[in-house]
Amino acid sequence: MTMPAAIEAVRAAFAGLTAGEFELPPRQAFSDSRSLVMAVHHKPTRSTAVKVISIEIERDPVITGTIVYSHPDGQFVTDAVPLTTLRTGAVVGVATDLLADEDASHLALFGAGAQAADQVRAVHAVRPLKKLVVFNRNARKAEALLDSLKDELPDTVMDVAAGAEEAVEGADVVCCATASTVPLFSCDALKERVHVNAIGSYRPVMRELPQALLESAEVVVVDQVEAALSEAGEIIRAVRSGVLRLESLVELGAALGNPPLREGRTVFKSVGVAVQDWAVARLLA
Rank of each mutant, 00 (worst) to 15 (best):
A189N: 05
P210H: 08
P154C: 07
A167T: 00
G170K: 03
V160F: 04
A212P: 09
A162I: 01
T156N: 07
L184H: 05
E166Q: 14
E218C: 11
E165S: 13
D155P: 09
G200T: 02
S201E: 04
L213V: 02
L214A: 06
D172L: 07
Y202H: 13
S216G: 12
E169C: 14
A217D: 07
T181I: 15
E152M: 11
S201M: 11
E152K: 03
A189D: 01
A177P: 09
A179R: 13
V205H: 14
L149D: 08
A161S: 04
A164G: 13
R207Y: 01
K150T: 15
P154H: 06
L184Q: 03
A164I: 10
E165Y: 10
G163Q: 12
A171D: 05
L214Y: 03
S216L: 11
E152W: 12
E152R: 10
R193K: 14
E152G: 10
V205C: 14
R193G: 10
E169K: 13
M206W: 10
D188R: 06
V219K: 02
L190Q: 00
S180T: 00
A164H: 14
V205T: 13
D159F: 12
A167L: 09
E166A: 10
V219N: 06
N197Q: 05
E152L: 12
V182Y: 15
A177E: 03
V160C: 05
P183R: 02
D172P: 08
E215A: 13
T178P: 03
L213Y: 04
F185T: 01
F185C: 03
D172H: 08
N197G: 00
L184M: 04
A198V: 09
C175S: 11
C175V: 08
C176S: 07
N197T: 01
A164D: 13
F185H: 02
S216Q: 13
D151H: 15
V157Q: 13
M206H: 09
C176V: 07
G200D: 08
E165Q: 13
T178H: 08
E192P: 10
E152D: 11
A177W: 00
